[in-house]
């Protein structure tokens, strides 16, 4: 009896829920909104005195509904995602008085750096669910552990520690008012690249939300390259490690030999 009642109520509630969610979407617009973005430069050079940089992303909403624009129903999120790699989080514990790494967890393919800017603080329920689904935002990035996990209960602790450490280290950044409308449908986003930004191909992504639901997204690549001597050394160390090692030894031998010549006591 009770089961039947529950089942019945689900049928009544379900269609109502769907129509409610569709309400802000369906009625107002006839054409689908679009998004265009451009970046001030598509390559960032890291010199030896690099202290971080600001990246400006310009964009426009096309086919926007004027009324929805006016009442601020559109939200823009712009992210800058660094190259992806595995990340290992370790936790120390006191063993015989000494602090030792005991537990560890490895997350698969997470961005090494991540910067996010949005039009406002994203906090309503539908929006948060949407962000979770597409994995956008520092709190919503999927952190999937790999390998053997001793204790699943610790998963959330390790995820929280990862986010905290990345934020405090400056590699992950968020600016809840980093996107500003410069005219009714034109916007400008500023993203911060930290001084220790990893080199490689980064991706700028812009997402358009209407009333908490994602409408469309755009992405463009951004290359971060080390220049000059720094790059030459880093490249050599990684691409030709043996030759690089031999070079290091040669330099050392020459320095030592040179010193014995210069300071020779005869």
């Amino acid at each position: 009896m009770l089961k039947q009642l529950a089942l019945l109520s689900m049928f009544i509630i379900a269609p109502a829920g769907v129509s409610l969610a569709q309400l802000p979407l369906g009625e107002a617009s006839s054409a689908q909104e679009g998004l265009d973005i451009g970046v001030s430069s598509n390559e960032i050079a890291i010199t030896s005195d690099f202290r971080g940089a600001d990246l400006t992303v310009f964009g426009a909403i096309t086919n926007a509904d004027d009324l929805l624009l006016a009442i601020g129903q559109y939200d823009i999120i712009v992210t800058l995602e660094g190259p992806r790699d595995y990340a290992t989080v370790r936790r120390k514990e006191r063993v015989l008085g000494i602090w030792i790494n005991t537990e560890s967890m490895t997350f698969e393919q997470v961005p090494e750096s991540y910067s996010i800017a949005s039009t406002r603080q994203l906090d309503d329920e539908t929006q948060l669910t949407a962000l979770d689904n597409i994995g956008v935002g520092i709190e919503h990035l999927p952190l999937n552990p790999t390998g053997y996990i001793r204790d699943v209960g610790q998963l959330s602790e390790f995820r929280e520690a990862y986010r905290r450490l990345k934020l405090s280290g400056g590699l992950y950044q968020k600016e809840t008012s980093g996107v500003r409308f410069v005219s009714s449908s034109l916007f400008r986003a500023s993203l911060r690249l930290p001084a220790n930004v990893p080199d490689g191909v980064h991706i700028v992504r812009a997402y358009l939300f209407k009333g908490g639901t994602q409408v469309t997204q755009r992405e463009i690549p951004l290359r971060v390259v080390k220049t000059g001597l720094e790059q030459a050394i880093t490249d050599a160390a990684h691409d030709r490690p043996l030759a690089y090692g031999a070079f290091c030894v040669l330099i050392a031998m020459l320095t030592g030999w040179g010193a014995s010549l210069v300071f020779r006591k005869d």
């Binding site: 290992t88 370790r90 602090w99 698969e108 090494e112 790999t146 390998g147 520690a161 450490l165 990345k166």
Partner: peptide, 9 residues
């Protein structure tokens, strides 16, 4: 107590 390292196992 926590630390992060790039790279996996």
């Amino acid at each position: 107590l926590y630390s992060v390292a790039v790279g996996g196992i």
